[in-house]
């Protein structure tokens, strides 16, 4: 069934007809077992290019494992992963930015003794010449200045430009979340994997977050794992639903909302 066609056309993608061009991210028949437990069971899903795709499911459904497979933290027992339309034999976390993919973590993952600017530029500075940066060469200094400029621009885009020189601990949690987002945007990703971005933030901040995520498309592709259903239904073009390591439903937000299997998984109603 895995009939595919070119990057620009609509068609069958990993077994499902999608009204979108070739997917930016996909899993094909991926299975993961950890300690004898099946975490993902032949999961196939995809995120269409230039759209916001949601990945939802009850606790333990395997959502974060999907992200861990996509970002190389977990190697699947079987199946394949495609990023940017390219099937990858092995994904390594530090290569994600090279593939134009950024991932946020459930927490903020900021380093408390580094300033916001240092946190945001951490990877970008080291990436641009592992040893040149150590020697403080003129071109490395110029590169570092460019990286800092880009970081300040990213922080300003997210409305936290004035916080660049403060420590993360001095900032409210929603601002820390934005700092983590700014760090992810430093590689100018074409695909962003957002792992529970709304965790721990207020309803007002959530509305801002929704607008922000929508502002990234169609230039970027977003795959969103989130528990806040209002946010998911509001911002997503397409949703995949996992339960106990299997895909139980997929479709537009309206289709998913009415799907009996989804109602059963979330509310315990018979499918």
């Amino acid at each position: 069934m895995a009939k595919r066609e070119g990057r620009s056309g609509r068609g069958w993608v990993v077994g499902f007809y999608l009204p979108f061009p070739h997917p930016a991210v996909s899993l094909d028949e991926v299975s993961v077992t950890l300690g004898g437990l099946t975490i993902l069971d032949s999961v196939s899903l995809s995120a269409p290019r230039g759209a916001v795709t949601g990945l939802i499911g009850p606790n333990g459904a395997g959502k974060t494992t999907v992200f861990n497979v996509l970002s190389g933290f977990v190697r699947p027992d079987s199946g394949s992963v495609s990023l940017g339309g390219r099937a990858l034999r092995r994904v390594r976390p530090h290569d994600l930015t090279r593939h134009g993919v950024a991932r946020t973590l459930q927490g903020v993952g900021l380093f408390p003794t580094l300033t916001v600017l240092q946190n945001v530029t951490l990877g970008a500075r080291a990436r641009h010449g592992f040893f040149a940066d150590s020697w403080g060469s003129p071109w490395a200094d110029r590169e570092a200045a460019t990286v800092r400029e880009t970081a300040r621009a990213r922080l300003s885009e997210l409305g936290i430009g004035e916080e660049a020189d403060r420590l993360p601990g001095e900032l409210p949690y929603p601002v820390q979340k934005r700092v983590a987002l700014a760090r992810s945007l430093m590689c100018d990703p074409s695909v962003i994997l957002l792992d529970e971005p709304a965790g721990g933030i207020s309803a007002a901040d959530m509305a801002d977050l929704g607008s922000l995520v929508r502002s990234w498309v169609p230039e970027r592709t977003v795959l969103l794992v989130e528990h806040h259903m209002e946010l998911v239904m509001e911002v997503c073009d397409f949703i995949w639903v996992l339960d106990a390591g299997r895909v139980i439903a997929h479709g537009t937000p309206d289709e998913v909302r009415r799907d009996p299997a989804v109602l059963s998984a979330y509310l315990g109603e018979p499918a």
Binding site: S71, F73, R92, P93, H94, D95, L96, T97, R98, A102, R103, L105, G109, F111, L122, G123, A124, A126, R127, R183, S184, M186, C187
Partner: peptide
């Protein structure tokens, strides 16, 4: 994990 996701 954060450092690796930053591309290092």
């Amino acid at each position: 994990e954060v450092v690796r996701l930053s591309g290092i």
